[in-house]
Nucleic acid binder design. Structure first.
Length: 354
DNA sequence: CAGCCGTGGCG
DNA sequence: TCGCCAAGGCT
């Protein structure tokens, strides 16, 4: 539902310019039906791509999208997948709550016989918030819903010279985006604004000279385009430290532990170790002759920097760990680990070679 | 509702 | 090297 439409002369002109530009310059993307093709995209592929694209770049998503759609071509297939297989397939993409919610959502959708086709119903599903619900409704079901993501926020802030910093400006930007959304081809309009933000109206050094709506842009007119949108400064990231333990049994098996379902790296496999805090206390998963590696692993999460000390040990076949379990060398695939754990393996693996 | 939640690329 | 940023959602 919108409280306004693109009926005013200026919004209609802007939307028209955007659509004409999109018809000529739309990027070819694996989940996208090109403009002008009279065919609705598969809601499953729209949903999957939109969830993967949450706070994630197109380049990072492409490979995962191909892997998922090849292995699970339908929402029914994904709904029937094993949890651990989906988590391992998602490994490296980040924000692992998305993968957990993806499975929950797939199972709800499969059980009800398909995706709902309205924004309100879509938003009741796990992992689908205001943005994703609007995007699926507009792109897959041709509903005139306005999407508001980081790209749209930036384009609206500049077009209409909104100087209020985010997140306070969000309601105003939402209204502007809704006022610009046309009743015809709302899905293409949404993708046009996002494409514009991704390729021309970029965060730094926007290419205003080739922008299809330059003539309408208030920020461009006053020379402040590159300074918008304003944002309230974020606090600095603190440094946390940790100690991880990589145990290799004589038969090659490796000691791994599945992390708690919620929280950081929730539900993912990892190496056992200490908590990550200012001054961690060692927490070896079993008694062994631990050897500390010289190099540390450095990694940055959303809200803190991490430095990990890595300890390795070879342990006898009868070793009984207090936490985690041994995984046979042949079943171990570092690609199924989150990136920080892959970094640990890249140091520990060579140190444990026979 | 503000804090939590990954990762990689870029300037 | 470092901070910013990306097709946000959950609690």
């Amino acid at each position: 539902m919108r409280d306004s439409t693109a009926t005013g002369p200026v919004p209609a002109q802007i939307a028209g310019r955007l659509m004409a530009w999109y018809d000529r310059h739309a990027r070819a993307l694996p989940w996208r039906v090109p403009p002008g093709v009279a065919q609705r995209p598969d809601p499953y592929r729209v949903w999957l791509s939109e969830v993967m694209l949450q706070q994630t770049t197109v380049a990072a998503v492409k490979g995962y999208f191909h892997a998922f759609t090849a292995r699970w071509p339908t929402v029914q297939a994904l709904a029937a997948a094993a949890d651990d297989d989906v988590m391992a397939a998602w490994a490296g993409l980040g924000y692992y709550a998305r993968a957990r919610n993806l499975l929950k959502c797939a199972r709800e959708v499969a059980a009800r016989g398909g995706f709902p086709d309205t924004r309100a119903e879509l938003q009741r599903l796990p992992g689908i918030g205001p943005y994703t619900a609007a995007a699926i409704a507009a792109i897959a079901f041709d509903r005139p819903e306005a999407v508001l993501d980081g790209n749209v926020e930036r384009v609206m802030a500049r077009l209409f010279a909104v100087e209020t910093p985010l997140p306070a400006a969000k309601p105003a930007l939402t209204e502007l985006a809704a006022a610009l959304t046309p009743l015809q081809r709302p899905g293409d309009h949404a993708q046009a604004v996002m494409d514009l933000g991704a390729t021309i109206c970029t965060p730094r050094s926007p290419a205003c000279g080739i922008c299809p709506v330059m003539a309408f842009c208030a920020a461009r007119a006053s020379g402040i385009a590159a300074t918008l949108p304003r944002k309230t400064p974020k606090p600095a990231k603190p440094l946390r430290r940790g100690i991880v333990h990589v145990a290799r049994r004589h038969d090659g098996a490796l000691l791994l532990e599945r992390r708690p379902a919620r929280g950081l790296l929730g539900g993912m496999l990892g190496w056992p170790g200490s908590a990550w805090e200012e001054t961690p206390r060692p927490a070896p998963p079993l008694e062994a002759d631990w050897h500390t590696l010289e190099a540390e692993v450095r990694h940055t999460f959303t809200h803190f920097h991490l430095r990990l000390q890595v300890q390795v040990a070879r342990v006898p076949p009868a070793a009984q760990p207090e936490r985690g379990g041994f995984i046979a060398r042949q079943e171990f695939d570092p690609q199924g680990l989150p990136t920080v754990m892959r970094k640990v393996w890249s140091l520990a693996g060579p140190a444990l070679v026979d």
